Computed example of a mutant assay.
Amino acid sequence: MVSLLLLLLLQGTEAKMDIITSKQDVLVGQEILMLCQKGDITWQKDGEDTEEEEKVSTMDETSSKLHKKATMQDAAKYTCRCDFDSGHQDEVQKTLSTYEGPSFGGTSTYHEFLEGTDGVVPCQVTGQPAVDVHWFRDRQEISTNAGRRVRHLPDNTLLIQGVRREDAGTYTCHAEIRGRPIVKQLAISVVVNGQYLFHIKIQLMAGPETNVTFLCLVAGHPQPNITWTM
């Protein structure tokens, strides 16, 4: 289990307060651990006293901690407020963000299309907050321009109109939590099958011992395997 640690240090009864964090973006399900030391301590979340389920506890006479598993609702501004015996009050704040995903769910990573048909390649992405999706091939982003034969549709699928042999290859669905450097990528293979042309030639030779010749010519992509049965 990966933990998020927020440590608040005070030196002296009225020293400057500061919060030190390992990171401020927390994946849903990870632990949030906030430590506050010195003074008579209270915790607030977005300006309101924390609820009992936040698991605030006193570690000793000078320390307190807030500990729980992160949910999307834990994105907030947290305040550690200290009241000192001298009557001085001080506080420090830290804003935490939470996220979930991106996740590709059951997105298929292999597609076969017949040459000349229209190919549709889905990319099913979920995540919170919003997820931005981009398609790439050979590190070049695929356009959303409606006039392009190969384009990125509004529902995040990839459309290949009139599939050609050169469309075969690996495409990348790139998903990123909006406004944050949290990225996942999924490689998807596309195979193009060509139309097959058959030519069968039968040659018969009359005689006591008749010879029969069958010739089968097949053209297509990928190269087919030919077998004979009787």
Rank of each mutant, 00 (worst) to 15 (best):
G47D: 04
D49V: 12
E51K: 10
E52D: 12
E53C: 11
E54S: 10
S57V: 13
D60R: 02
D60I: 01
E61Y: 10
T62C: 15
S63V: 08
S63I: 08
K65H: 14
K68G: 10
A70W: 00
T71W: 07
M72N: 09
Q73N: 10
Q73A: 15
A76F: 00
Y78I: 04
Y78G: 02
Y78E: 06
Y78Q: 06
C80L: 09
R81P: 11
F84N: 08
D85P: 13
S86A: 13
G87K: 01
G87Q: 03
H88R: 09
Q89E: 13
V92N: 04
Q93P: 08
K94G: 14
T95N: 13
L96P: 00
S97E: 07
S97F: 13
S97M: 10
S97T: 13
T98F: 00
E100K: 04
G101P: 01
P102A: 03
S103F: 02
S103T: 06
F104P: 00
F104S: 01
F104Y: 03
F104A: 01
G105T: 02
S108N: 15
H111M: 07
H111P: 04
E115I: 04
G116M: 04
T117H: 08
T117M: 10
D118G: 15
D118R: 06
G119Y: 02
V120I: 14
V120K: 07
V121F: 03
V121Y: 01
V121L: 10
Q124P: 14
Q124V: 08
A130D: 06
V131T: 04
D132T: 13
D132Y: 05
W135N: 00
R137G: 03
R137L: 04
D138V: 07
S143W: 02
A146P: 11
R148M: 14
R149M: 06
R149G: 11
R151K: 07
R151Y: 03
L153I: 14
D155H: 01
